[in-house]
């Protein structure tokens, strides 16, 4: 299951006006104002959300750049995992497509 198709011409962003973050210990609670749902994010999903909030990117750019953002070697950040992390945020509506 995915939120919908993807295409490498499409650019994605997380808009901090559309969610509220609250930290409890190592976890982040994200309340989406768009869906009205509360999500519990671990450190990596939280980092993905912050990374997407920086500026709009295509999925290819996300896959290529996320390891460097986390300051870990690329092999510790396989593309399948990055895809899934992105997919989960897309699925719940925490990221949105914008015009390039």
């Amino acid at each position: 299951m995915s939120a919908g198709p993807n295409n490498d011409d499409w650019v994605w962003v997380a808009n901090p006006d559309h969610y509220i973050l609250h930290e409890i210990g190592d976890s982040t609670f994200a309340f989406s104002r768009v869906s009205g749902t509360t999500h519990m994010l671990n450190l990596v999903s939280r980092a993905m959300l912050d990374y997407l909030a920086e500026h709009p990117k295509t999925l290819t750019q996300i896959i290529a750049g996320f390891a460097a953002y986390l300051e870990v070697p690329p092999e510790e950040c396989p593309s399948g995992v990055v895809r899934r992390l992105f997919g989960e945020l897309d699925e719940v509506g925490l990221v949105e497509r914008v015009e390039p």
């Binding site: 939120a3 919908g4 198709p5 768009v34 009205g36 509506g93 497509r97």
Partner: peptide
């Protein structure tokens, strides 16, 4: 207001699901 939010979000998700089609 929950119903409005739910409808708006579901509409948003339909749009997402049909994106590109």
């Amino acid at each position: 207001s929950y119903d409005q939010r739910m409808l708006t979000f579901e509409t948003n998700r339909i749009k997402r699901a049909l994106m590109g089609a």
